[in-house]
């Protein structure tokens, strides 16, 4: 039997290179993928994309499909194709329109007041940088935003409680006046909206502070030298710079406010004065277990939210185009 010449130079060279295991080979090939400039962005975005497809796209498509069916979990063999019947039924449903109109009022006043209050308080904080304890005050101010809506709902339900609540104790002790908020259909809606405003005004303060931080210092100093009034400074310097961030804040709040459920649910107001559209959806999906109808309503709400977003984006685009045009001329 011929013996292999182990001392030959070629053999020695081969022996110096570590043996290529399948795993090592795979890792080397995988690493090479990252060297490809075209492939790299795809690879980086792939995990997010997969997550998005699995958890967003597929469920949404599934929901769209279900919205064309009659499907009630608690009724066996209830699955039946209905076409657009669920949608026409929803459009004809008076409770849906009432819920939707209440929700629009909720969003309009809620986000509107939060924005105005947030801007005013944000300006005050911005102008009081040397105030002692400012940081602590800011931290405390942001607390409501951190509290979960469930806790806030329970908290205010107890505060408003006429027999044991602190608010009634206070008004009776000092003014001899009993206050019924959640039990009075004329004010219950506004009493619950107040809690939402209490919770989310800090968010708009934060957004206002972020918007103000985006204003170039030089321009503000120039305005000070030119002795521009505060109104003019806001109009000509602060708003043009900060409005994009503010708009983003308003957009986020609008979408979030449109979906309000837990807070209102927890406050348990008698009657239908606080029955927002999300409450109707919850009842239909989780109490009646009417999956088909609820899916159709959810799709309608999704489209409404997309419409909101599109309007905001359109306004933002208009502004950027106008700005670009201004710069060009």
């Amino acid at each position: 039997m011929a013996q292999a010449d182990l001392s030959s130079p070629a053999r020695l060279q081969q022996a110096a290179v570590p043996a290529m295991t399948p795993l090592r080979r795979f890792l080397m090939r995988f690493n090479r993928l990252f060297d490809d400039a075209r492939l790299l962005p795809v690879l980086l975005i792939a995990p997010v994309l997969i997550f998005f497809i699995v958890w967003n796209v597929i469920p949404t498509l599934w929901m769209i499909g279900l919205s064309f069916y009659r499907y009630q979990i608690s009724i066996p063999d209830s699955l039946a194709f209905l076409g657009i019947d669920n949608y026409t039924d929803i459009i004809r449903d008076r409770a849906m329109w009432q819920g939707l109109s209440r929700t629009f009022i909720w969003v309009f006043f809620g986000v509107g007041i939060q924005t105005l209050l947030g801007m005013v308080l944000g300006f005050l904080f911005w102008g009081s940088k040397s105030m002692p304890g400012r940081r602590l005050a800011l931290t405390l101010l942001f607390t409501p935003m951190i509290v979960t809506p469930v806790a806030a709902g329970l908290f205010f339900r107890l505060i408003y409680e006429p027999t044991f609540g602190i608010l009634n104790w206070f008004t009776q002790s000092f003014f001899g006046q009993e206050v019924l908020l959640l039990q009075n259909p004329e004010v219950a809606f506004w009493a619950v909206l107040f809690v939402d405003i209490w919770m989310w005004t800090p968010f708009m303060i934060l957004i206002t502070l972020a918007a103000l931080a985006s204003v170039p210092k030089a321009e503000m100093e120039a305005a000070e030298i030119d002795r521009l009034s505060w109104f003019d400074r806001i109009r000509y310097i602060i708003l043009p710079h900060g409005k994009y961030i503010l708009m983003l804040g308003i957009l986020l709040r609008t979408i979030d406010s449109f979906k309000t459920l837990d807070l209102v649910y927890l406050m348990a107001v008698p009657g239908s004065t606080t029955k927002l559209i999300a409450i109707l959806l919850r009842e239909s999906a989780f109490e009646a277990l009417n999956v088909g109808w609820s899916s159709a309503l959810a799709i309608i709400l999704l489209l409404t939210a997309i419409a909101f977003t599109s309007i905001y984006l359109y306004i933002l685009n208009l502004n950027s185009k106008a700005k670009a045009k201004e710069v060009a001329t």
Binding site: R157, E161, T163, E178, L182, Q183, A268
Partner: peptide, 8 residues
């Protein structure tokens, strides 16, 4: 005849 806020 119930305490105030009996609706809750």
């Amino acid at each position: 005849y119930t305490p105030p806020g009996a609706l809750s």
